[in-house]
């Protein structure tokens, strides 16, 4: 997983902080690479992580979207009932979704999962903790 994020997250953002990550691997440069980089999201709340990362695909209202394929909604999605499932998806990725968790701390994964599970009409019980996320890495 580490290698993936190193080869993908080579651009910074205004909220992006330097990570304590090693230098770029020797892997072939992708055409999508750029030469500036930060590898972690930096300080951000669960809500901010949703807005700045998740919404790129799941949309700002968390209702998902459809084209030739679809982005599943996070609003009213029963797959979020058990917190470990969305946490695992964030950490490991799923199908076309990258393992976003590689640029988040354990606490940030927990924060964004808990945020989504308690907003957009979702009222799922129980909170994911940083140590739960750590065990998934």
């Amino acid at each position: 997983m580490k290698k993936l994020i190193l080869s993908m997250a080579l651009i910074g953002a205004s909220s992006v902080a330097e990570a304590q990550a090693p230098a770029r691997p020797a892997a072939a440069a992708s055409a999508g690479d750029a030469a500036f980089g930060a590898r972690m999201l930096g300080e951000a709340s669960g809500e901010q992580i949703f807005t700045r990362v998740c919404a790129a695909c799941h949309m700002q209202d968390a209702k998902g979207a459809e084209g030739a394929g679809r982005y599943p909604p996070l609003a009213g999605n029963q797959k979020l009932a058990i917190g470990a499932y969305p946490a695992m998806v964030v950490v490991k990725g799923l199908n076309g979704m990258p393992p976003i968790g590689t640029m988040l701390t354990d606490q940030q994964v927990a924060d964004v999962v808990n945020y989504v599970r308690s907003h957009f009409g979702n009222k799922f019980k129980g909170a994911v903790k940083a140590e739960d996320v750590k065990a998934m890495r």
Partner: peptide, 26 residues
């Protein structure tokens, strides 16, 4: 802009108007 990784997600999540504003500001 040629954004990737965290920057790409952030700009993608914006409306097209906000993306232009972010590009101008940055």
């Amino acid at each position: 802009a040629f954004a990737n990784g965290a920057g790409g997600y952030m700009l993608a999540g914006m409306t097209p108007e906000k993306r232009i504003e972010a590009a101008l500001a940055q």
